[in-house]
Design a protein around this nucleic acid. Structure first.
Lengths: 140, 140
DNA sequence: TGAATTATTGAAATAAATTTCAATTGAGAC
DNA sequence: GTCTCAATTGAAATTTATTTCAATAATTCA
């Protein structure tokens, strides 16, 4: 739960309280291999520990996002999904036609990141992007 | 209102009805030099022509978006903004710290678009992007 | 023209995310 | 240990966006 190097220990290092609610939420995010939505996290947490409010889930996610401990991605489903930042960065190609999701290595955005830094002195946050468009099958 | 080459004439060319509601909505989008939100469009339209429903505004925007006549951008304000596609494509750098918005030429994303097409056969929709990060003043 | 069909609209319900504010909890000071 | 104060939480309200579905409007075809 409060494993060294995990999100939990980083939170307390930074001076935030590690409340039971937060521990449950962190555990739900970390134990998931996939990208989870706020609702899914809430459902998991409530199952074990009923006194957690959905707004606490959102607030915790907001905090983790601000601290860079989780990344947020809008996959175009009308809800946002979260992923622990330390489990590796990657992007997704989302086909607007058939909904297919293609994973993408982080390096694809590296040239853009460099250009923005060089020409605009802007540190772009391109850690976990969803790029919309049409996949090969749908563009024929 | 139904000026040649405008969004309105394109809609009717494509076989969609040019209802009074749609004409008002189109006019509000086209007359705006800036990026407008659905609520702003609705406010403008209702002022002149009260029998328009907010859901018609959303539906019309959805239609225009699907037809590629307007582009949609989430500038991180918790609401989405729209812009006529024929008024030129561009991107925005949005500073997460101070909220500054820096305009960006479309060409910055061209290398990525090419790579995705070449390596993934994916036609990426990179017409009006908001890229989040930290501007020069806030990253010191 | 008039009937049939289809597109479009309005009103209200719904959903995800966020905000507000009072109540509670926990951490450090004394 | 207990007091104080800031951080955190829960409940409910709010906001933006979307969906549903019956009613209405417009177009097509006979």
């Amino acid at each position: 739960m409060n494993n060294p190097g995990g999100i939990g220990s980083k939170l307390s290092e930074l001076g935030y309280r590690l409340t039971p609610q937060r521990m449950m939420i962190l555990s739900a995010i970390e134990s998931s291999d996939d990208h989870v939505s706020a609702e899914e996290i809430y459902a998991q947490v409530v199952a074990k520990y009923s006194n957690v409010n959905i707004s606490t889930v959102y607030r915790t996610l907001e905090l983790l996002k601000r601290l860079g401990l989780v990344t947020e991605t809008d996959m175009g489903e009308g809800r946002v999904r979260y992923h622990p930042a330390d489990k590796g960065h990657h992007h997704h190609l989302v086909c607007k036609e058939c909904g297919a999701i293609i994973n993408l290595t982080e390096s694809v955005m590296a040239p853009v990141k460099d250009t923005l830094l060089r020409e605009y002195k802007f540190i772009a946050d391109l850690e976990h992007l969803a790029i919309f468009g049409r996949c090969i099958n749908c563009s024929k």
